[in-house]
Simulated scan of single mutants.
Amino acid sequence: MAEDEPWTRDDQDHNDRCHARWRASLYRSTAQSGYRDEWRDAPCGGCRFRIALSGQLGRDYGACSNPSSSFDGRVRFEHDGCESFAGRADGSFG
């Protein structure tokens, strides 16, 4: 895809590059030495304020819309999390 061409959600190369860049900014990476087990139960994918992106990137990423979160308005990985997690009433994920 050329720089001046519009993005389409079917561009696998573009999606893969986005995924790699965005994974580098995880807040609660399981690889961090200070990662706590209780964080596994409060990931962004289960938060009622997560708005999933469309297309293939929406499988893993969504925008935070929680006004109490420092990540409000930012794209977050579904398994990331924050201190303002608010679980969904139905307990769903994704």
Rank of each mutant, 00 (worst) to 15 (best):
H79V: 13
L57T: 00
G62L: 01
A2H: 14
L53G: 03
G73F: 05
R17W: 09
D41C: 03
R88H: 09
Q32F: 12
E5Y: 03
A89V: 07
S70W: 07
R48E: 07
F77V: 00
C47W: 04
P6G: 05
W7V: 14
S92C: 04
R36A: 15
G34K: 13
D13G: 10
A52Y: 01
R40S: 06
S69C: 15
S25D: 10
D13Q: 14
H19M: 04
C18L: 11
S70H: 13
D16L: 03
C64H: 00
P6Q: 04
R40D: 14
A24W: 00
A20R: 09
C64R: 01
G62R: 01
D4C: 13
V75Q: 06
C82L: 08
R88V: 06
T30D: 07
D80Y: 01
G94E: 10
A20C: 02
E3R: 14
C44H: 00
R59D: 07
R9E: 11
A86Y: 05
G58K: 00
G45Y: 00
A86S: 07
W39K: 07
F49R: 03
D60L: 09
A2G: 15
I51M: 13
R17G: 04
G94A: 06
N66F: 02
D11R: 00
G58M: 00
N15T: 01
D72N: 15
G34N: 15
A89L: 06
Y61N: 02
A42Q: 06
F49E: 00
R74W: 10
M1I: 08
G73R: 11
R9N: 13
A24S: 05
R59M: 08
E83C: 08
R40Q: 04
E3D: 12
R28Q: 07
R28C: 14
P67C: 04
S84H: 08
S92R: 08
D80K: 07
H79Q: 15
S25F: 11
F49A: 08
E38C: 08
H14N: 09
P43G: 06
G81S: 03
C18V: 10
E38F: 14
S29L: 02
S68L: 12
T30H: 02
S65L: 04
A31G: 04
A89M: 11
R59V: 06
F85P: 00
Q56A: 13
F71A: 12
C44A: 00
N15F: 02
D60T: 10
F93Q: 03
F49Y: 15
A24V: 06
A52E: 09
D13A: 13
H79Y: 14
G62Q: 06
S29W: 02
T30L: 13
A52P: 05
R76K: 06
S65C: 05
C47Q: 00
P67G: 04
R74A: 09
D72H: 14
L57Y: 06
Q32W: 12
D4R: 12
G62N: 07
D72I: 02
S68A: 15
G87I: 15
A63W: 13
G45W: 01
S54M: 12
F93E: 05
Y27C: 12
Q32S: 12
